[in-house]
Amino acid sequence: MAANTQHARPWKLGFRHRRWMIGGVIAALALTAGCSNRDPQTADNSGAGALTIVDQRGRTITLDGPARTVAFTVMPAPSIFAAVDRSYDRIVGINQSTRVANRGGMFATMFPASADTTTVAGSDFVPNVETLLKLRPDVVVQWGDRGASVTEPIESAGFPVVGLKYGTQEDLEQWITLFSRIAGKPDRGEQLVAWQRSEQAEMRTRVSGQQGHRPRAMILSRAGDTYSTTTAEGYDGFQFDLVGADLVTKGFVSDSGTVGPEQILSWDPEVIMLSGFDESTPADIYSDPRLSGVSAVRNKRVYKTPLGAYRWQVPSAESPLMWQWMNRILYTGAHDGQLRDDIRAAFDDLFAYRISDDEIDQVLRLDLNKNAANYDQFLR
């Protein structure tokens, strides 16, 4: 693979081609010969010295200084930490689901070590203490709102634990802030949170100008013949409203999220966004005769959600890109190529990576979505 010779550009995101330099003063980077699109990174010793962190449990954690090694039992925390650090160098342990996403998306391309990083927990988030003892991370990041059974074994083994909560945009912004403290880069955290908030404000302005009907939409997962969905009580309640959609599952209550075809027909979503946590494709939905009467199926408005550094549908460092993608498939407009430009700028700043056009196609799942209505707006 030949190196991409495009020079890194200033941070430029937003619907009006807003230019905004993020990351403070970034050292001039020389393009290296060989097969990597990654920018060389310089050491950051700005956070030297002991530090204290108050996690989302309200617990105070004291570290000798910025962590040299971090293990994550949760996802998508590693991709967010990598965006804060612009590096994968400190990450020594991850969740099994994170490794699956790494291998399936862009993350392993940007950070090859992430494809084989040691797993320290599975889908139940129960920590593998024996593995942690071998890795000896400076700090472990774990859910802080799922009871002591997932945190006490780690603390009993002698490792500091930073506990997280999940479910809101505010939680995501706190993750970014916590990770910037762990990395000894508080200014970087402030800049990324400011970007998230600025993009929210721009999206609200954009949606307020999109007068008329708000499309009915939903997230859908499929496993065999069984469907499941998300509710408005979680993050989707926030982001569907932000981008100008009426989430059809508002008021839906289900511990498992399982939903029958009859209920989907009753909701009659105009747009269906397929989860990135399973292998379902738009073709699978179109071929299910039980859903043939759904508006989104009839009008070819079923879309596989993007997979960038992580699955875009959940809170992540790339969430502003997800909001743009959602709004653009909900409200068709000019094919201005802005989202591709914003992906390119975001990957440059978040991950110090010069993403190619072919890789942007991969992120946007053009292979699966190419026949969906108005998806040609994302063609290069």
Score class of each variant (00 low, 15 high):
residue 104 G to L: 03
residue 94 I to D: 08
residue 81 F to R: 08
residue 105 G to Q: 08
residue 128 N to M: 02
residue 136 R to N: 12
residue 119 T to K: 07
residue 135 L to W: 08
residue 108 A to K: 13
residue 98 T to N: 12
residue 106 M to S: 11
residue 97 S to K: 07
residue 106 M to F: 03
residue 150 V to R: 10
residue 99 R to T: 11
residue 133 L to I: 12
residue 129 V to A: 02
residue 134 K to P: 04
residue 98 T to Y: 13
residue 98 T to Q: 13
residue 117 T to I: 15
residue 163 G to D: 08
residue 134 K to S: 15
residue 169 Q to R: 13
residue 134 K to F: 00
residue 136 R to S: 08
residue 100 V to E: 14
residue 100 V to R: 14
residue 102 N to M: 06
residue 133 L to G: 06
residue 146 R to T: 11
residue 158 G to T: 13
residue 123 S to Q: 09
residue 149 S to N: 14
residue 88 Y to C: 08
residue 133 L to P: 07
residue 99 R to S: 09
residue 123 S to I: 10
residue 168 T to L: 09
residue 96 Q to K: 13
residue 136 R to W: 02
residue 121 A to W: 04
residue 170 E to Y: 10
residue 111 F to P: 06
residue 94 I to P: 03
residue 151 T to F: 10
residue 166 Y to N: 09
residue 81 F to I: 05
residue 132 L to K: 05
residue 154 I to G: 03
residue 117 T to P: 01
residue 158 G to R: 10
residue 126 V to N: 12
residue 123 S to F: 10
residue 90 R to V: 01
residue 145 D to W: 02
residue 151 T to Q: 01
residue 123 S to M: 05
residue 127 P to W: 05
residue 118 T to C: 00
residue 113 A to F: 05
residue 124 D to R: 12
residue 159 F to R: 02
residue 155 E to H: 02
residue 110 M to K: 08
residue 85 D to C: 01
residue 84 V to W: 03
residue 81 F to V: 05
residue 86 R to K: 15
residue 139 V to T: 04
residue 122 G to F: 08
